[in-house]
Simulated scan of single mutants.
Amino acid sequence: MTIVDHSVISPGELDGPMLVPLSREVSWERIQRLSQQHARGVDAELIETVRATAVVRRGTRMVKPLPARAVAGVLRGAVVSGFCYRGYDTASLRSPGDWSVLGADPSAPVTFVLRWRAVDPVDYAYPKAGGGLSAIPAHERVGPPVLGTGFAPSSTELIPEFHTADFADLPLTANASLIAYTPDGSEAILYTYQPEQRGWLRLAGPQWRPLLYGLPGVAPEQEYHPLHGERAFSRLVGRFQEAEHDAVADPPETFRVLAMSRAARFPVDSLARRTRYARWRGVLCTGVGAEGDWARLRISDPDAVTVAATGAQCQERGVYEVWAPVAELTEVHDMDLYYEI
């Protein structure tokens, strides 16, 4: 059991700027250049100091750009995993051309973005220099390289990047949203996640409905998209009156029992993220799916060695998954990560 300390943050402090100590000696150009290379000595200390000010707190808005083909998967029940960013740091990205710095297609008519609020900073990490993802060969990765500085690759922007801890799935928080950004910079909220209804509600009005046309697997006129499939291997659980229940997080303040009836949505006394872990061929992984005698695994700390040992394939930037026989798995267990609420 892991206990996570959490200091109370007022709503106005949930989304704060990254601080850059500009001076005559330290220019913006220098900071941006250092963010794109493996600095040493004083330069390394400087860029690490800047990166440390990009803080995720309970309730911080987080975002992840999605390819059009991934939208239907989210509506069916896919959750948060892999690389993501603070909404504060991407606020200036409005058009598909802007979002291309984070891997979006600049020629696409629209960029889709998943937005949610963080439950706790312990759910997020960022890659460090010295091996790991930054040492994986180009032919075994998808998307831009991982620099190991904590910043996204860019010749012009300074955007701190994060990934979900252990690259595990994170359950979506209440009122997460699927957003579209158009070439003129407009933001359209297309769907919002309603955990009690176990699905997504369409919010896009008639003027935004054409943005949904052509999305693989999405019916533009469908107002409610129920989640599909079995219970996820990563979910929130809470205790109320000494009994365990599936739980819902609505950061920064609301954590409740998952219940259809409003009268039964009691505040939980404790909250934990329960995630399935296992080892295969000696490599620690999280469970993300199962079918018969086979399990879908995601490498928790991918590097050139673990990718080669498992034969895992890169599904998206930083996310390496593989199917493995259940009979060959060891140390299979559910780990509860408790949050202080």
Score class of each variant (00 low, 15 high):
Met1Ala: 08
Ile3Arg: 14
Ile9Glu: 08
Pro11Val: 00
Gly12Ser: 07
Glu13Asn: 13
Glu13Tyr: 12
Asp15Trp: 04
Val20Ile: 15
Leu22Gln: 00
Leu22Ile: 08
Glu25Phe: 08
Ile31Met: 06
Gln32Val: 03
Arg33Ser: 10
Arg33Leu: 11
Val42Ala: 14
Ala44Glu: 15
Ile47Met: 02
Arg58Tyr: 02
Arg58Asn: 07
Arg61Leu: 07
Val63Gln: 03
Lys64Trp: 04
Pro65Phe: 04
Arg69Glu: 14
Ala72Glu: 02
Ala72His: 11
Ala72Phe: 01
Val79Arg: 11
Ser81Val: 12
Ser81Gly: 09
Ser81Ile: 13
Leu93Trp: 07
Arg94Ile: 03
Ser95Tyr: 12
Pro96Val: 05
Gly97Lys: 07
Ser100Lys: 08
Val101Leu: 01
Leu102Ser: 04
Pro106Ser: 11
Ala108Asn: 09
Trp116Glu: 05
Asp120Thr: 14
Tyr124Arg: 00
Tyr126Ala: 10
Tyr126Val: 07
Ala129Glu: 06
Gly130Phe: 08
Gly132Lys: 12
Gly132Met: 15
Ala135Gly: 12
His139Trp: 04
Val142Thr: 05
Thr156Ser: 11
Phe162Ala: 02
His163Asp: 06
Thr164Ser: 15
Pro171Lys: 04
Ala176Arg: 01
Asp184Trp: 07
Glu196Val: 10
Gln197Ser: 14
Arg198Phe: 05
Gly199Asn: 02
Gly199Ser: 03
Leu203Met: 06
Leu203Gly: 01
Gly205Arg: 15
Gln207Glu: 14
Gly214Ile: 14
Pro216Met: 01
Val218Ala: 01
Pro220Phe: 06
Glu221Trp: 09
Glu223Val: 08
Pro226Ala: 05
Ala232Gln: 09
Val237Gly: 03
Gln241Pro: 00
Glu242Pro: 00
Asp246Gly: 05
Val257Lys: 09
Ala259Met: 00
Met260Val: 13
Ser270Ile: 10
Ala278Thr: 10
Thr286Gln: 09
Asp301Ala: 14
Pro302Asn: 06
Pro302Tyr: 07
Thr306Phe: 09
Thr306Asp: 03
Ala308Glu: 14
Ala309Asp: 13
Ala312Asp: 02
Gly318Asp: 05
Leu337Glu: 15
